[in-house]
């Protein structure tokens, strides 16, 4: 029983991490209908910038509490990512806005490769260990262990989702976003400055990417130049599972994917009598994805037209 609870907690935290990144994917998709493959790389840049600042702070010997150092790192990473997000949209996506979808998709992958290589040149190819700055006091819960950082990550993912929902549905900017999402031309005619709205979307998404990057690095204790790749892939899967373009869907999809992976890895071996091992965990995750997409092509919470965040 305690093992089962532990697996659920593992899955929930992993899911929250996917959700943190998936929210960024889904926001851009909601507005532009573009899969921003470079998002995972923005997460990586956020982590690396924060790490550099943190390393300097730690090396300088200033006695600050761990969370403050982490926050300073994050504060430095956010503007960098915001500028980067703005620049990516301006340079790589805007000129192609009216081009066929495929063109924009290829550019997105190009940007992703470019960022990975730039990061490799700046920070090198090795793994960097990320100092343990955030409290990780373990707590016992029904025989399983959960620590402060894990609780914080789950709460943070929920808070960010709630904040974005509020932004999109209750504010003036959000209304402009929804209008742009429905039909950019008409929104433009109605006086919405769609270029600004799209830029702001990218800037917000990139700031969230910085948050995600710092949290993920702190959780695993590492950062490296290609950490965005797998993360982006999994987060994208989570977003599709929940219904891409839907913010609550990103959260749901993330948590679902995390729990399936965790339970899958934990129990496949026992359930199949050792015939399938824990390396089949991804197979089960993608099997669920295929099933969901067959039955509900737009994802669990996806609604095609009415509400793309």
């Amino acid at each position: 029983m305690d093992i089962f609870v532990q697996q659920l907690i593992n899955g929930l935290v992993l899911g929250a991490i996917y959700a943190l990144v998936a929210l960024g994917y889904t926001m851009v998709y909601g507005i532009l209908g573009l899969i921003n493959f470079a998002h995972g790389e923005v997460v990586m840049i956020g982590a690396m910038v924060a790490l550099s600042v943190i390393q300097v702070l730690v090396a300088s010997g200033i006695a600050l509490p761990g969370p403050v150092i982490a926050a300073l790192g994050l504060l430095a990473a956010m503007p960098v990512c915001m500028v980067l997000g703005f620049a990516i949209e301006r340079v790589a996506y805007r000129p192609l806005r009216n081009a066929p979808r495929l063109a924009a998709l290829i550019t997105a992958i190009g940007v992703s490769i470019l960022l990975q290589n730039v990061a490799m040149i700046i920070w090198g190819r090795q793994y960097h260990s990320f100092p343990a700055l955030l409290p990780s006091t373990p707590h016992q819960l029904a025989g399983a262990t959960i620590n402060d950082l894990q609780i914080f990550i789950v709460l943070l993912a929920i808070a960010i989702m709630a904040g974005l929902l509020y932004l999109v549905h209750r504010t003036r900017l959000g209304r402009a976003m929804r209008a742009t999402s429905e039909n950019p031309e008409i929104a433009g005619l109605m006086g919405v400055d769609i270029n600004t709205v799209i830029s702001i979307t990218f800037v917000i998404g990139s700031a969230l990417a910085a948050v995600a990057g710092v949290m993920i690095s702190a959780y695993y204790g590492i950062a490296h130049y290609f950490m965005g790749f797998m993360l982006g892939l999994k987060a994208f899967t989570a977003a599709v599972l929940g219904g891409i373009g839907n913010l609550a869907g990103a959260m749901l999809g993330g948590v679902l994917l995390g729990v399936i992976e965790s339970l899958g890895a934990g129990y496949i071996g026992a359930l199949t009598g050792g015939f399938l091992g824990s390396h089949y965990q991804d197979v089960f995750a993608f099997l669920v994805l295929i099933l969901v997409l067959t039955l509900r092509p737009s994802g669990l919470l996806g609604e095609r037209v009415a509400e793309r965040s």
Partner: peptide, 18 residues
Amino acid sequence: GREYTNDKATDFRAILTS
């Protein structure tokens, strides 16, 4: 116990828990 992962993985909590 015999568990498996891959050479790009970063999260082993599920197999370690098991």
